[in-house]
């Protein structure tokens, strides 16, 4: 219908709706580039990418659930437990890095699936159900670790008094995943991009992705078109669990130990990154590259502000502003 006579105001609105987040990213980079002398360096950008690698993977876990119209606040909880489990299996049970990781991923998947089953079977609100699951996962982490961080040959009080030294180590290969470099590029950055691309392809180019998006877009219409909606919700929750668990494992690899409280702090950033991503290219729905842009925007803000000497307590104000702006932008794209 009459696309030729789009006026100037409409055009501006369309541009903002489509490229708003990208433009915001450009402005933020330019601003910091001008005010902060060391900001525009390859080293600093590598730093930023490394700093957002875990949160991007974690946010992708949330994104996949959101794509199916399902909220999963338990991603950080699952990440925490899966991370601790992978470290614990290596350190206490002397399992190999691969075996430990696979077990942790499977446990993450099962936790995700359990949330999905619960939400569907009892028809409860998914946001609150996953909040409950987050508490359970956090409690499981604390119970499993006894409240201690897990590191190679750690020492822990024995139940009978005295101390026990753990027999195993977090293997070097495992730590390479989080700390290694390939040329000038950090390993976790490479892993992050691989996960982004895989999630993107999965959501956009496979029949499962289409069906997940359909379920998220209008579950009733999807059901009446013969799509097994409940199955796809559980599927999406399971994938969300796997990605969250993987983020948890990656975090352990980055830190060289399982810091039990580390992943909990990421929850709100993760929600923000996914939602900022909605407006990427005017898609108006959860998507992999958008989530990355969202995480990058937050990461760059934190990095630039830190370089300017703004304390991290104040930084949250800026994060909040960015989230609010991007929500407004994604609203534009839906008009």
């Amino acid at each position: 219908m009459g696309q030729s006579n789009i006026n100037k105001g409409d055009l501006l609105r369309i541009i903002v709706a489509k490229y708003g987040v990208v433009i915001a990213l450009g402005i933020v980079i330019a601003l910091f580039g001008i005010i902060t002398p060391n900001f525009m360096s390859v080293g600093n950008f590598t730093n930023i990418l490394r700093s957002i690698s875990v949160i991007t993977v974690l946010s992708l876990g949330l994104t996949v659930a959101l794509a199916a119209g399902a909220f999963n606040l338990a991603v950080t909880g699952i990440a925490g437990f899966a991370g601790a489990l992978s470290a614990g299996l290596m350190v206490w049970n002397q399992l190999s890095a691969i075996t430990s990781s696979v077990i942790a991923l499977i446990v993450g998947m099962l936790m995700g699936a359990a949330i999905g089953l619960f939400v569907i079977y009892f028809r409860v609100d998914d946001l609150l159900a996953s909040l409950g699951a987050m508490y359970i996962a956090q409690g499981m982490t604390l119970t499993y670790t006894g409240g201690l961080n897990i590191y190679s040959n750690m020492i822990k009080p024995s139940p009978g008094g005295g101390f026990t030294t753990a027999p195993g180590r977090i293997s070097d290969g495992f730590i390479f995943m989080g700390q290694g470099m390939v040329g000038v590029i950090p390993m976790p950055v490479i892993i992050m991009f691989i996960v982004i691309v895989l999630v993107h392809i999965f959501l956009n180019n496979t029949k499962w992705g289409r069906n997940i998006y359909s379920v998220g877009s209008n579950p009733e219409a999807a059901y009446l078109a013969g799509i097994p909606v409940n199955g796809y919700k559980i599927f999406a929750y399971s994938l969300s669990g796997i990605l969250a668990a993987f983020a948890g494992i990656l975090l352990v690899a980055r830190l060289g130990s399982a810091q039990i409280a580390e992943s909990q702090a990421l929850l709100l950033d993760c929600v923000a990154a996914s939602y900022i991503g909605f407006s990427f290219l005017g898609q108006g729905k959860p998507n992999a590259f958008g989530t990355f842009i969202g995480a990058a925007l937050m990461g760059i803000m934190v990095n630039g502000l830190s370089m300017l000497g703004v304390s991290y307590t104040t930084q949250d104000i800026f994060k909040g502003i960015i989230l609010l702006l991007s929500l407004a932008i994604s609203r534009l794209s839906q008009k």
Partner: peptide
């Protein structure tokens, strides 16, 4: 609108809603 369409998706998507598996 409520039970049939994915209002934010395009024509192809809406026409193929039950058939994604057949086009994979």
């Amino acid at each position: 609108r409520k039970e049939g369409l994915l209002i934010k998706e395009n024509l192809i998507w809406n026409m193929l809603l039950p058939s994604f598996g057949d086009f994979a």
